[in-house]
Computed example of a mutant assay.
Amino acid sequence: MSTPTQKLSQAGVSIWLDDLSRERLTTGNLQELIDTRDVVGVTTNPTIFAQALSQGESYDEQMKQLAEQGADVEDAVFSVTTDDVRDACDVLAPLHEATQGVDGKVSIEVDPRLAHDAEKTTEMAARLSKAIGRENVMIKIPATEAGLEPIAATLAEGISVNVTLIFSLERYRAVINAYLTGLERALENGKDLGSIHSVASFFVSRVDSEVDKRLEAIGTDEARDLKGRAGLANARLAYQVYEEAIGSERWNRLAQAGAKPQRPLWASTGTKDPSFPDTMYVTGLVAEGTVNTMPEKTLEATADHAEVTGDTVRGTYDESEAVLNRLESLGISYNEVVAQLETEGVQKFEDSWEELLQTVSTALGK
């Protein structure tokens, strides 16, 4: 009997853990999740690091050393986070080799305060990649308008990129264009396209959180019937966009030169509404060639009771389009929702970064 996580993997979904801490590394917990929960990658963000540093004693010794060296807060954050990601890359290195670089990836995000500064984002991406010094690191760059050029520029240098904070289908198309542009430049630069990887992180549950709040305010039966349906509909239509992209002549030319597809990644997959099934953003988004990055709570729920029945994305495009159209007919603007979510998303990461800086500052005794 296959477990739910094995079934998910067999259906073509790579399971990544949306969490990392020094404790996970030193206790062997990350390796345990690889062995027992079919985890094949890790994603991090400022919130995750802020939580890790505020709990336990795993960082005390390094903080003491950094304080003695007179490190400033920014340098200490850089040192601590890149050390954790480097160590996680080493844990996942066998998977990276076994999958020819497709999985075994660990993602680290550029300073979110640079989200609207293209030049500094590009510089930070290169600095992170060099400091970690592992082939299986992925640099996370937010999909703001200012992020599109750094995405292409970073890929052009042969650095793998996790494009994060995608909410809208229009922006996703722009992200795909940035990926293809980056690969074309990389080819011109003489890079091995087969060694460059990317995922496009589509945020799911946050769409429902915002849309459902608006549906509640409307309060009609039709509005209530649409609760919990926007996030899946939006993500499924993103997969349709992905299929169109990998069917294009532009992509075929790059594939012939050894390029790998930029896989859709489902992020924000923990349910925010307790009335929803706790695995709905896992079982509802099963499709070949995707990644689902899960917080541990969602991962454990999936392992315990998820019903994986095969592809739940292809064949849903008309229905998904109808959901978004019905929302528009109720006065809920798709463009307004996704623009708001992007703005809030950048702000949340900036707030978490400030929290991380404050936590490190306290640990350094500053």
Rank of each mutant, 00 (worst) to 15 (best):
T43R: 07
T44Y: 07
T44P: 13
N45K: 11
N45F: 01
N45M: 13
P46L: 04
T47L: 11
F49T: 05
A50I: 09
A52Y: 15
L53Y: 06
L53S: 09
L53E: 08
L53M: 15
L53Q: 02
Q55C: 12
G56A: 12
E57G: 00
D60S: 13
E61F: 02
Q62A: 10
M63R: 13
K64H: 07
Q69T: 09
G70H: 03
G70P: 04
V73F: 10
E74Q: 14
E74W: 03
F78I: 07
F78M: 11
F78Q: 14
V80E: 10
V80L: 15
T81C: 15
T82H: 06
T82Y: 06
T82E: 01
D83R: 13
D84R: 12
D84N: 14
V85S: 04
R86Q: 09
A88C: 04
A88T: 11
D90T: 12
V91N: 13
L92M: 15
L92Y: 07
P94N: 06
L95V: 11
H96V: 00
T99P: 00
G101A: 00
V102A: 11
V102S: 08
G104C: 08
K105L: 15
S107D: 05
S107H: 04
I108V: 15
E109N: 13
V110Y: 00
V110A: 05
L114S: 04
H116Q: 13
D117Y: 02
D117V: 01
D117W: 02
A118Y: 03
A118E: 14
K120I: 00
T121E: 04
T122H: 06
M124N: 08
M124A: 09
A126S: 10
S129G: 02
A131T: 10
A131R: 13
I132G: 11
I132R: 11
R134L: 12
V137S: 12
V137G: 15
V137F: 01
V137A: 15
K140S: 07
K140T: 03
I141N: 10
I141A: 06
P142D: 01
A143K: 07
T144F: 05
E145G: 12
E145D: 08
A146E: 06
I151Y: 05
I151F: 01
A152F: 06
A152D: 01
A152Q: 07
A153N: 01
T154K: 10
A156W: 08
